[in-house]
Structure formats: structure tokens, C-alpha cells
Design a protein around this nucleic acid. Sequence first.
DNA 1: CCATAGTGATTCGTATACGATTTCGTACTC
DNA 2: GAGTACGAAATCGTATACGAATCACTATGG
Lengths: 219, 219
Amino acid sequence: MTETAVESKSQQAYAAVKARIVEGTYTPGYRLVLAGLAKDLGFSVVPVREAIRRLEAEGLVKFERNVGATVSGIDPTEYLYTMQTLSIVEGAATALSAPLIGEADIARARAVNEEMRDCLQHFDPIRFTRLNQDFHSVLFEHCPNPHILDLVHRGWNRLASLRSSTFRFVPGRAHDSVDEHEALLKLIETGADADTIEKAARLHRSATLDAYLAQAKNI
Amino acid sequence: MTETAVESKSQQAYAAVKARIVEGTYTPGYRLVLAGLAKDLGFSVVPVREAIRRLEAEGLVKFERNVGATVSGIDPTEYLYTMQTLSIVEGAATALSAPLIGEADIARARAVNEEMRDCLQHFDPIRFTRLNQDFHSVLFEHCPNPHILDLVHRGWNRLASLRSSTFRFVPGRAHDSVDEHEALLKLIETGADADTIEKAARLHRSATLDAYLAQAKNI
DNA sequence: CCATAGTGATTCGTATACGATTTCGTACTC
DNA sequence: GAGTACGAAATCGTATACGAATCACTATGG
């Protein structure tokens, strides 16, 4: 059986369009025409349409009735909102996960963080951001509440589509970030109470946001 | 121009099905057959399909590929997850709203709460729950972050579809709830710091959840 | 008597087709 | 010359139709 459990075309279309948005092929403001995408992907318009609506629900595209869809812009306030929301749900997710994080997880996270530290020398924002996501994934993936976890994932997705790397804009933030990661790990290791961990995780993200805002103001 | 700006059939279908779920016509576990709904509403299956997918995204229905959709169950863990998530996002929304809440809003919320207090005599869980939502709406509707506000609305929607009223199950909780509301108002009036308000709002909801869980354990 | 394979019915998934709406360009009038 | 109205092109919205997957029931063999 070459049973590849083929995904539905809606899903394929969803994944394809999403990938193109995230990787930057479709830049913000890009007009997504249903018929065009359909012909391009080799599907009919119906699955494409459904894919677009899903992307709309996630906020990656804006859809206007009888007009069409466009890739969501990097409106700075949009970035702000997303980061703020993520700071809240990620903080909660991390706090809920903390009691379920084992030594192996800690070790893995620490290894990733060391890799990030190395990365500080010949700085590569994209790679750094990727490692950053890996690091945080270890911390929140054990969250026992699937709804919250889903919100965290959506937040990260949205961020990825908004800009490929925040650290490209505020490289100075990277150094502090690594230190805060280590502090966060220590808190979890020592079994700090949930509230402390939540605050730390939330502040960690808020700090990145603030750094960005301070930077943006100077432009 | 009697142009009533007719909504698209997808939207109509969405609203119709959602209404039937919330009002209880379609009970949890009910099988939603696309063709059946379409014939029933007088539409084709395509808009109905899209409506179902939207409802799926909101968590009101579960959808399985090549099988069909069913109304989401009142799985107790599902209720728990939803309440926990709502406690977090609503707490944050309330704290972010607090500085923007004026005296008029406070007065309105207080009036609603008094109505709830009256309602305690000849207790009507449905009415009480409705007032409860009105009360909290005043507190979080000023939230300047639309994403968070959206999450709060989704949470309330989900709760409404899961059970028409939590207070039907734990009537004893209603009395405490009213008192906590007043305490919350005092905090906002006196300009307490965001963290205090957030904690209070979160605990307020957690307490309802705990009351339900304690009750459920005894069944 | 139970397990398993086959068959039919039901329902979903997608393609194609056509009607509805918006948008943009052009021509006409003031 | 500018503004408005008309019309054509482009695109979305929905209906219908058919193929594909799943499930329940039955019959057959162990």
C-alpha cells in the first residue's frame, strides 16, 4: 500500500497558500484571486475558496465580500496586538506546562538556548528566530489545555506571516533574550509557583515588543 | 431602495445553524448533514458547507473528514478547558479595559449587578446568566486589543453553546458571584493596578469553574 | 455461534457552469 | 475641462452534478 493518506485538496490549498505567505512569495497587500490560485494549483475554485476562508479566520488574509482577498499587511498596530495577545496566552500556557516539564525537556531547551548564544556572534536573525521558537515550544507544548495551546500556535503563525524575524529589526534584543531564557529555565527547574512563571514568560515577550516599539519610534 | 444589504447565504446559514445550536434545537451530538441542512434552509450545500466550517473553527461543531459534522458535546473536560481559557483572556481583557471604563459604565454595570441581586430571590438561571454576560460585557468591551476581545467573545459563545447556564447546575454560586462583581467594580473605580484587576477577574471565573467541579464530583 | 468479506446506501469532496456584484474605463454632457 | 453616467470586464457567490470515501448490513465460511 502506497497509502499516503492524501490530504483533501482544501488542506493542500491551505498549506500551499499559507506557505507562500509565510515565505514571502505573496507579500502583504498581494491580491489573492480565487480563479488564479485555482488554475495555478491545478484545483477547482471551491477548495481554494475554503482554504482562503481558513486563512482569513487565522488572520493571515483579509477578505472582503464580492471583492476578494488580500494578504494581511504588516500594519504595526497589528503586530502590537498580536504580540500582546501572544504574551498573555503564551505566559499562561508556559505556566500551565511548567509542572509537566521534565529534566530531559529542560536539558533540550538549554541546549537550544546555548545554540542561540553561539548564534549571537555571526548573527543570523532568521536562524535565531527559528531557534527561539524551538526553545519556547519546549516550554509550552506540554500545556494540558488544548485550547490555550491552539491560541499560542496561532499567535506564532501570525507572527511568522507578519515578519520573518523580529530580531532583524532589533538585533540588540537578542542578547537579553538569551539571558531571560536561562532565567526562565531556572524558575521552572526550581519549581517556582505558577504566577511567577507566568509573569516571567509574559514579561519576556513584552520586553521584545517594547524593544521593537522603542526602535520603531526612532525611525 | 429597500436595499437591506442582504447578507450572503453563507452568513445566513452560519447564523441560522448557530442560533439553533445555541437555543438547543440541535443538541450536542446531533448529526449535521449538509444536504439536509441545505434543503431545510432552501440553499445549496456549498454555503452550508462553508457555514459549518466556520462553526468548526469556533469549536461549536466537530467535523470529521468524509464523515460529517456533529454538534460539539458537553464533554466536561471541554467545559473545563473553555472556562480556563476564558478566565485567562477575559482577565486580561478586563485589566486592559479598566483604565478606559468611565463612571457611566460603572453605574451601568452596578445597575445590572443589582438586578442580578434581585434575581436571586425567585431564581431564574437563564435570566441570571444573561445579566451576567451583560455585566462582564461592560467591563471588557473597552479592551483596546481587538484580538483579545475576539477571543473573549468566542469563549462566551462557546460557553453558551455548551450549556445555557452554568448557574442552573450550581445555584449556590450565584450569590457569591454578585458579591465578587461589586468587589471588582470597587477595584476599577479606585484605579487599582492592572495586575490586581486581572487576578480578580480571573479568580472570579475560576471560582465558578471550581464550584461546578465540586458539584460535578458529587454526582 | 462468531468473525470476516462483500455489497449497497448514505454522505462528503470537488468540478463545472452560470448569475450577481463590483470596479474601472470611456464617452457624453454641462 | 471636469464631472457624471453608462457599459464592459473581472471576480465573487451559488447551484447543480458526479465521483470518492465511509458505514451498516448481510451472507458466507470457519
